[in-house]
Design a protein around this nucleic acid. Sequence first.
DNA 1: CGTCTGACGATGC
DNA 2: GGCATCGCCAGAC
Length: 102
Amino acid sequence: MDSRTFYQRVYRIVSEIPAGSVMTYGQIAFYAGKPRAARFVGRAMRLAPPGLPCHRVVGKNGALAPAEAFGGPGAQRALLEREGIAFLPGGRVNMKKHWLQG
DNA sequence: CGTCTGACGATGC
DNA sequence: GGCATCGCCAGAC
């Protein structure tokens, strides 16, 4: 799988996240082969192709992506809640419950 | 073509 | 437990 770029590995991993679960930038970066390239996961999301469930990618503490990235405040949250993701009072994803661990 | 920035996170102090 | 710094390296300017 080394003939693909880091981004494509990221896309592959993200596309395999099941509905109702989330993964963190750092974890995805780790799986993609660059444990410290969490930033690039975010960059990959920004350049993400249509159809990629990038709303299932959150920060380590459950923080969601910038609102504008999903067309407005609450958009990502709505998508996640629709998949059964539970949120904490702080507006963050309940990682304890939905974090998809390897 | 040099510099700055960035959907982040680990580490050091 | 909060703040500063480094790593990652592709785009924007």
